[in-house]
C-alpha cells in the first residue's frame, strides 16, 4: 500500500510540475504579456548577438588557413550558420504549425508567419555564400546535385508560404492553410540533411554534427561554433521583432473591423421609420 501511495504521490507531483510548466508557457500565449517580454529582452539579446557574431568572425579571420582550401575556408563561418539556421527556422515553423493545428496556441501562427521571411533570408545567404564558395573550390557556381537542389526547394517553400499568407486575408484561415503546407514541406528537412549520404553529391558530407565527432580541427571549429551561436541569437532577435510586428498588424486589423462594423450596428437606431 505504501508503495502504491508513494507511486500515486509521485504521479501527482509530476502532474503538478507538468501543469505548472504548461501554465508558464500559456502565460506567454497572451500577446500583451509577450510584447512586454520582448521589450525587456530585445535590446540585450541584440547586443549579445552582434558581440558574439563579431567575436566569431574575428576569430575566424585570425584562425589558420585550411591546408587544401586556403583562405577560402573563411566563407564557412557565414555559410554553415546560415545553412543551419535555414533548417532550424523551418523546424521551428513546423513545431508552430503543430501548435496552430493541434493546440490552437494563439501565438503559434504569429510565430510561424514571422519566421518565414527570416528563414528565407538565411536560406538565400546559404545559397549565395555556397555558390561563391563553390566557384573557386569546385569550378562552378551551381550544380543540380541533391544538397543544393533540396536547399533551393526549401527556399521556394519559404517564398510559397509567404505568398500564401499574403493571398488569404483572414489570418486564422491563412494560419491553418500555411500550417498544413509547412508540415507537408517538412519532409524536405531529412532530405537536405541526409542528401549527401543518400546520393553522390558534389557537396561535402557533414563534418560537425557526426556520431563519431567533428572532423574539423579545433582551431577552425571554435570560431565556427561561436559564429553559429551568434547567428542563432540574431535569428531569435529578428524573430521576436517580426512577431511583435505581426501582433501589431493583427491589432490594426481588429480595430479596422470594429470601425467597419460600428456604423452598421448604429444604423437602425438613427433611421426614421419609413411608414
Amino acid at each position: 500500500m505504501d508503495n502504491d501511495t508513494e507511486y500515486g504521490t509521485r504521479i501527482d507531483d509530476q502532474e503538478t510540475f507538468g501543469l505548472e510548466f504548461i501554465m508558464q508557457l500559456l502565460a506567454f500565449a497572451n500577446p500583451t504579456r509577450f510584447l512586454k517580454f520582448v521589450q525587456v529582452v530585445l535590446r540585450p539579446l541584440a547586443i549579445l548577438a552582434i558581440a558574439t557574431i563579431a567575436a566569431g568572425l574575428y576569430l575566424g579571420f585570425v584562425a589558420p588557413e585550411d591546408y587544401q582550401q586556403g583562405s577560402t575556408v573563411r566563407i564557412m563561418y557565414i555559410h554553415v550558420p546560415a545553412a543551419w539556421l535555414s533548417m532550424f527556422c523551418y523546424s521551428l515553423m513546423a513545431i508552430s504549425a503543430l501548435g496552430t493545428l493541434v493546440w490552437k496556441h494563439p501565438l503559434a501562427d504569429v510565430s510561424a508567419k514571422a519566421a518565414a521571411p527570416i528563414g528565407a533570408a538565411f536560406t538565400l545567404i546559404a545559397l549565395l555564400t555556397g555558390s561563391l564558395w563553390g566557384k573557386p573550390m569546385w569550378g562552378t557556381y551551381w550544380e543540380w546535385d541533391a544538397r543544393m537542389t533540396s536547399v533551393l526547394i526549401l527556399f521556394i517553400m519559404y517564398i510559397g508560404l509567404i505568398a500564401l499568407w499574403k493571398a488569404i486575408e483572414d489570418p486564422i484561415l491563412a494560419g491553418k492553410a500555411c500550417a498544413i503546407l509547412t508540415l507537408v514541406g517538412a519532409i524536405n528537412l531529412p532530405v537536405i540533411k541526409f542528401s549527401v549520404e543518400w546520393w553522390n553529391s558534389l557537396h561535402q558530407p557533414a563534418s560537425v554534427l557526426r556520431l563519431d565527432g567533428p572532423t574539423i580541427h579545433p582551431s577552425l571549429l571554435t570560431p565556427l561554433l561561436i559564429s553559429a551561436i551568434g547567428f542563432t541569437l540574431l535569428f531569435f532577435t529578428l524573430h521576436m521583432m517580426a512577431m511583435r510586428n505581426e501582433i501589431l498588424s493583427r491589432r490594426i486589423r481588429t480595430l479596422r473591423l470594429k470601425a467597419a462594423a460600428a456604423p452598421i450596428t448604429r444604423q437602425p437606431a438613427t433611421q426614421e421609420p419609413t411608414s
Binding site: 588557413e65 586556403g70 583562405s71 577560402t72 573563411r74 566563407i75 561563391l132 564558395w133 566557384k135 573557386p136
Partner: peptide, 8 residues
C-alpha cells in the same frame, strides 16, 4: 585573403 579574395 589569398588568390580568391574577391569570392570571400
Amino acid at each position: 585573403l589569398g588568390p580568391h579574395a574577391e569570392f570571400i
